[in-house]
Design a protein around this nucleic acid. Structure first.
Lengths: 340, 340
DNA sequence: ATACTGAACGTAACCGGTTGCGTTCGGCGG
DNA sequence: CCGCCGAACGCAACCGGTTACGTTCAGTAT
């Protein structure tokens, strides 16, 4: 004979002949309960399939057991994989995960931060947050616990943030092309104001400088990371130059896909006439032909690392570092070769 | 001068010189408050940036304002796009979204349903739930509100479930191949016990029957939807037959990608020697070469439709239908042509 | 035997809202 | 002028836990 509503602590207390306080202590493993009572209560809880009322616990304890993750969108494999890594750790830590997609609407975003964040959750993972450094600092000052993954810009507040080694990855990509013998290397960048873009550019500059190759402004085109069509146009444009590049480093894989399509449309052989390197190593990178040489980002690890740091923060432990940069890795496939 | 903690209703009540009850009624738009008082309270709330305490509201009202979404994983574009569609509606409805990835672990899943479901949220969207029909029915009987997307098997309980028109889509795919002149058409299916697999098979049979073509068992191979490598092997196998097929219908795009790679590895021209059709229309379908002819599923719409139905359920309205099948659409690209 | 101590448990306040019911009061019909 | 009524608001219980503090009582030192 089960109750129509699920059992509460009062029910268990009545059944066990003790007070609610004792039940609470017994179930949460706190001291002050004899082992006999404790096991009796545990048994009753099992028999009557007691389920804690999360809102009630949250209200009285101040901890909700929930972690929010905000991200621009979830369709993009890039974000989805970071989210997946974070979700694993969040669930394993006994938290539940509140998802907030911002769709790059600044209004909704600060709404999320101002309202939703302040009371629904114990902390948050902010993925590519649209907030300015000022807003971020304000949020930090308010005492809210959060970790930033892939910030728009350098973070100055003393809070943890996570990126991958953009500069190093870009450097490896260029070095790879240089090693193959390329000297006219074009770039298709993403949004120029993004930290990740600046870092990639930095890495490119380092590598070119070391190789003694000047960076020709005419070989640098700008698109948006989400817009392969921009890369498509840029590639058409680049290949129509009097002296076209022999290699293109696209700042992410989606852009690289646009480049590959453009090359295909132009009848330009890849890697015969044109080498192409991407960044991210999305699943599709090995599906396209030729398989795309690209810089792999440890996306899932970025998510799980961030989640780990956040739970340390929530548990009042000091995180191991303020800025963690996770290693990237060059994956050589078939879109790069020596220039003819 | 702001408070260190965010303002509560008690604060507003004190400031406005009224009781908490009045503040509650004013803020939630309930009757019994003069318009003067109402606007005064609204102004105070704004000035002191009052934020409702969600757990408290949930505790007293019984409604949490949260909707759970459970799915096997979030990396897969298939699920991610359904999730995205659902997230949009959930947020627009003023709910927040609790994400639970099940990773196909049955233990964790029923845990989610038994515990987490029962009190943290007002309802749930179950994406490809691993539960048996019996468990689903039990959950339904417990009064919990939920909608199923893409069930493992036919749902018998009187609850809403959503699929796309698998049979019709598969039928169109076969008809397309038949129209092109193919008569030896191979299949690479997913898990045979899945509703979606059975339905696709059903559609295939209908189309073949209508065309007067027998379904040769030797041309039907089985893989798993998540395993392109299985399709790769199956394709190698099929093309080594004494009389190889002239077309392969892979039951989803990931499998089709495996087939394309196998064809490439074998030096079999697509669509010259072999036509390939997929199912889903993932982003990569137009990135691979040749562009994949496939059956488009309205993934985002499946998610948003499900979320809409769920909120109707939560608001005690009757959903328009128990089983909604959303239209699929054949997208013809360049992986299909007449057999040589 | 007395006083002290600590384990085990109860009491009650509290978290921040929601809501049924009671109270006040101004206006209006008779 | 009395009585009635509804609008506007307060009171207080309640949702289901957590936790500081008080109480009981058995065991032990003196």
């Amino acid at each position: 004979m089960t109750l129509d509503r699920s059992a509460t602590m009062q029910d268990l207390a009545r059944l066990a002949g003790v007070s609610v306080a004792t039940v609470s202590r017994a179930l949460s493993g706190k001291p002050g309960v004899s082992s006999a009572t404790r096991s009796a209560i545990a048994r009753l809880a099992r028999e009557h399939s007691y389920t804690e009322n999360l809102p009630a616990r949250a209200l009285s304890s101040g901890r909700t057991g929930r972690i929010a993750v905000t991200l621009p969108n979830v369709q993009a494999e890039y974000f989805a994989r970071i989210l997946a890594g974070a979700a694993q750790v969040i669930h394993d830590g006994g938290f539940s995960l509140v998802l907030e997609t911002t769709q790059h609407e600044p209004g909704r975003q600060s709404d999320a931060i101002q309202r939703f964040m302040k009371m629904g959750v114990d902390g948050a993972l902010l993925l590519l947050p649209a907030e300015s450094d000022r807003e971020i600092s304000a949020l930090y000052d308010s005492g809210f616990k959060f970790v930033i993954i892939d910030p728009i810009d350098q973070v100055t507040a003393p809070l943890p943030w996570i990126t991958s080694t953009y500069a190093m990855g870009a450097r490896r990509a260029i070095e790879h092309l240089v090693d193959l013998g390329h000297r006219r290397i074009a770039l298709i960048t993403g949004e120029p104001y993004l930290f990740s873009t600046k870092e990639r550019l930095h890495g490119v500059r380092q590598a070119l400088e070391q190789a003694g190759i000047p960076l020709e402004p005419g070989l640098v085109r700008e698109s948006r990371y989400t817009d392969p069509a921009g890369a498509y146009e840029a590639t058409l444009d680049l290949m129509r130059l009097p002296e076209p590049p022999t290699a293109i480093f696209a700042f992410n894989d989606r852009l690289a896909f646009g480049t590959l399509r453009a090359a295909h449309a132009l009848g330009v052989a890849v890697p015969g006439t044109l080498s192409v390197v991407g960044f991210d190593d999305l699943e599709a990178a090995e599906l396209v032909s030729p398989g795309l040489t690209t810089v792999r980002q440890p996306l899932s690890t970025m998510g799980s690392t961030a989640a780990t740091m956040l739970s340390q923060l929530i548990n009042e432990q000091d995180p191991p570092a303020m800025h963690m940069q996770l290693a990237t890795e060059l994956v050589v496939r078939h879109s790069t070769a020596a220039p003819r």
